[in-house]
Design a protein around this nucleic acid. Structure first.
Ligand SMILES: [Mg+2]
Length: 422
DNA sequence: CACGATAAACATA
DNA sequence: TATGTTTATCGTG
């Protein structure tokens, strides 16, 4: 009696997947979406041939023609080169200042969130820009493949970035970072901002609002207390986890030339930039089953036989001839790739498509309230057909984070394309 | 009920 | 091995 579940397959949906028509995910009702190709071109500072047009599904933030494209607070020197940006981090981190220079610490109190220690994100790049001279033997950037592109990389960012005005600067504290490892851990002490926020900050400050994974690590090492011990790499796992699961961060591949393999950058989503914030990473957990411990309670070396986890739902890349697929999973994987690959993007690099889980949540068909584990063969989802307002009109809450106001709980009415709330 | 941190299983390149 | 994606646990408020 409760729900009436409807199950459908979203194979077909994948075609229109990127249709950025998110039901009620964003606080902003309608997002003007219409990032033109030229905008995009500018974004990555490329010549830009005139485009084929839309790439319909993906909506980029629209930017007024006269709107400045530059990143507010960023030092000019850095603007042109994201690599430089992270190189700065990479280089400056290890040697001298490990952790956080207390000099730059600026405790403050942002009304929205005074808990977290504020920091100024690494001065390293604020002042020095990426010159981190020293390091003497600073080799050529280990990971800065992109040479041609990279250029300016400005990014459409209206006032969103401006948010970082006076009050909020970001924080970087010396010991911030959520963790304390073991046992007592916890953040609450003063609560360090969650990974998602830290990542948001790192990206927000970066040229083009994008950084490579390694650079993000570096940022953490420089602005948080992570990285102290070389042995711990759990925090990196956490970072990756957040990058993947939080829709505010998207991976963009940049081709570097024929021979080399494209490098991947993690970038703030246009949505994140426009709205000036991100949603909590855990919100994408909605569809998961919350299993309760029926087990013996063991934990340790375990098995979870649950079906697929990682990869078969991976993102796109390029189409390529498939050899003999190793197994069924791989087969399914490749199938998806073909579908997901966006033709209009051609060889251009751009945002990869949404990860499966996140795409489910945008199912055009309506509110998705559940799904089976992501198994190749069975792509069934469940949606609620009840009328809102009645019995259990579900609807969920989730947090939305913005620098100015911190986290705010918002409720999404569970309204989909279908149900126009009269 | 939502979060967040972690660990870990899996995939792919 | 490095990266990414996703499932699962445990602790908090
Ligand atoms: Mg993501």
């Amino acid at each position: 009696m409760d729900f009436k579940f409807h199950s459908q397959h979203f194979d077909r949906v994948q075609i229109s997947d990127q249709g950025d028509s998110k039901p009620g995910l964003l606080s902003q009702p309608e997002a003007p979406s219409g990032f033109t190709f030229s905008d995009w071109a500018r974004w990555r500072s490329q010549p830009a041939p005139m485009p084929p047009h839309q790439h319909r599904g993906y909506s980029f933030p629209r930017v007024a023609d006269d709107e400045p494209y530059g990143l507010g607070p960023l030092p000019q020197e850095l603007l042109g080169d994201p690599n430089a940006f992270f190189d700065a981090y990479r280089s400056h981190v290890p040697p001298t200042m490990t952790g956080a220079p207390s000099e730059v610490l600026g405790p403050q109190d942002v009304e929205g969130h005074s808990d977290w220690p504020l920091l100024q994100s690494s001065p390293a790049f604020k002042d020095q820009s990426y010159n981190y001279p020293q390091l003497g033997s600073l080799q050529p950037p280990p990971d800065s493949p992109p040479s041609p592109l990279s250029e300016v990389s400005s990014y459409p960012s209206p006032h969103s970035l401006a948010a970082s005005s006076p009050g909020m600067t970001v924080q970087t504290a010396d010991r911030l970072s959520p963790r304390s490892s073991t046992g007592d851990n916890n953040q609450e002490r003063h609560g360090h901002p969650p990974y998602s926020v830290l990542i948001y900050q790192a990206l927000k400050e970066a040229p083009g609002n994008k950084l490579q994974l390694q650079s993000i690590y570096s940022w953490f090492e420089a602005n948080t207390d992570k990285g102290g011990d070389p042995n711990a790499k759990g925090w990196q796992n956490s970072i990756r986890h957040n990058l993947s699961m939080n829709a505010g961060f998207e991976a963009v591949k940049e081709e570097v030339g024929p021979g080399k393999r494209a490098v991947n950058f993690w970038r703030l989503t246009p949505e994140a930039i426009r709205s000036g914030g991100i949603q909590s990473t855990t919100r994408y957990r909605k569809l998961q089953h919350q299993k309760k411990g029926v087990n013996s309670g063991h934990r340790g070396a375990t098995r979870q036989q649950s079906e697929s986890k990682g990869g078969h739902a991976t993102k796109v890349v390029k189409s390529r001839s498939v050899n003999s697929p190793p197994n069924e999973r791989a087969e399914a994987y490749h199938r998806r790739q073909m579908i997901d690959t966006n033709p209009s993007l051609g060889h251009e690099y751009g945002p990869t498509s949404l990860p499966a889980m996140q795409r489910y949540m945008q199912h055009p068909v309506g509110p998705v309230v559940g799904c089976t584990p992501m198994i190749p063969g069975n792509n069934t989802i469940f949606m609620d057909t009840m009328e809102p307002g009645l019995t259990f009109d579900v609807g969920h809450n989730h947090d939305w984070y913005t620098p100015e106001s911190g986290f705010n709980r918002v409720h999404d009415p569970l309204e989909g394309p279908n149900r126009s709330s009269a």
